[in-house]
Design a protein around this nucleic acid. Sequence first.
DNA 1: GTCTCGCATGGGA
DNA 2: ATCCCATGCGAGA
Length: 652
Amino acid sequence: MGTKICMNASCQTTTTHEWKRGWPLRSGGHALLCFNCGSAYEDSLFCDTFHSEEPGWRECNICTKRLHCGCIASKFLLELLDYGGVGCSSCARSSRLHSIQCDEIPNGFGSLTRNNAGDMESIPVESTVAANDNDEGGLAQLCRLIEASEPSLLHPSERANTNGCLGQFRQEEIRHAIGDIGTGFSNMTLPSIGSSKFTKPDNMSSLLDMGDMHSSLSEPSLSMALGAPSGTTNFAPFPGGAVEGREQSKTPSSFQQGQRSRPILPKPSKLGLLASSENNKGSASELRIARPPAEGRGKNQLLPRYWPRITDQELQQLSGDLNSNIVPLFEKILSASDAGRIGRLVLPKACAEAYFPSISQSEGIPLKIQDIKGREWTFQFRFWPNNNSRMYVLEGVTPCIQSMQLKAGDTITFSRIDPGGKLVMGFRKSTNNNEDAQDAQASGLLDGTASGETSLSADGYIGWNNSENHGGGINGDLLQQITAPTEKKRTRNIGPKSKRLLMHSEDAMELRLTWEEAQDLLRPPPSVNPTVVTIEDHEFEEYDEPPVFGKRTIFTSRSPGRQEQWAQCDDCSKWRKLPVDALLPPKWTCSENAWDSSRCICSVSEEMTPKDLDNLLRVSKGMIDPFCFLHKLLHIGEFLSVTLDLVCNTSG
DNA sequence: GTCTCGCATGGGA
DNA sequence: ATCCCATGCGAGA
């Protein structure tokens, strides 16, 4: 790509009298910016200038200066504070001197602050961990749990650090582990994949900003090119260039699409958690977070059901060349017609127009697509006139479908390898083995909203990218385990749409919010003793009973090494100090203060001065409650299982 | 009769 | 109301 293009997504100019160096890219080097954009970046005004309308703005907790969180261009200007919130670099540096040290907090819950500007490689977490006396494993585990549950508390680079350094856990496994929390972390496994070299152009961070912060959960070690504007140096145009620019005049830019797509991806961790009930079933299951399409250039924005839910492992499998840039394009759950004998795969119109070459003739063109085994298939990419529109199909897919032993309900994925623009296809089997379950599952899967936004799909089996299958190609044994259904059943394993279990995205969002609110109130059941399970040399408390709702309390550590819990009386609103392990009912008053007989009536004044109280409330606002946090996590599986049951029952 | 191809239909988003 | 797309269906080989 010989033409320089400004990596400011809202600029993208190719002409400037002087090119400037922007933010450092993960792949090395720096973003290329035109003079104006580069000047703004140099003056630390980039986000103020170009992203003022973007989401992701927060205020420095200390000086209230506006900070654009999650944006690569502001990466150096802010830090995540230990107990939540953000601070501008200067404030954070000064406040760090006073921050609570890791060893002051039980369970090794320590400072998680790290300068965002710090390179991922430069501050290995091991050194941080080793520098204190905490149980390293416990901290590592906790950090992973916290990270999975509260992604916003960690900067992506920190997450990457956590992954990369603490035993090479990857986010996929973290989500996986969270999904299994309800069963006592039974499936927490160490992946064998090391860090790889997939690169996401850092300018994408600015495009995705908050979305990137969240979605990074799904792309931890293998960052990908998502939402990349066509024409950046990181992306080769589609072969022939037919796709580039098509419909551009009519369509929102990928930047805009990214903005529009954000609400769909608010909190992947929560999404992942939602899937726990399903994912508890199989150790091979992975939670999938739908990613906004990389370059939506279609006339219409791609429906979330087509967003690639491809995992990093799958990408790695697809690539084979770690220096390649894998661009997940879209995916489609095979319909009965698709998987049938006709050999025609109906392509979503928007996807076909966005990612496949432009065709003007109905006969279309031969399109070569490589599968995961490296075999190259040639399909006829064509369309049928249909109601003044077009219906795009891939013809001749039967051999390929049969080769991959796909059936209705399975998912076929399309990606692109850059540079080169080679199209690759992968697939994901639906999990259910028996037909009845298949029906039910497929019914859920087939509804785009149900499978997508809620991550209810239990795609635990991954045909070609099982965690234990890193060698590339299809694991023959695994494939053998999939019994090819009869043709008759193949075309009948999806119920009519009217019978499909439906969970609208709004419902899912509602559920997430409900969960988010509820999690603050979760407590382990007081009458139940936990079972201590040891996994990977780490001990976890496992409860057989789902959590109960308790009164919200505040934990703080006003003096080194001393954790305190505070609760507010529901009658007099006075704050009372409690033991850290005290569990309160939803409604609690001073009269129930069994731990401090001198303050068990409302008429007695508070222990804290108003100033202390103010500080307490202020600090606790962004602070994680470390004690009950694990308890919450340990019960999320059961809690969500119950919740989902309720939702499914009401939806059905 | 069977299969393929191309278009039409209609439910659902 | 419009568009998408799963699938039905008829014509022709």
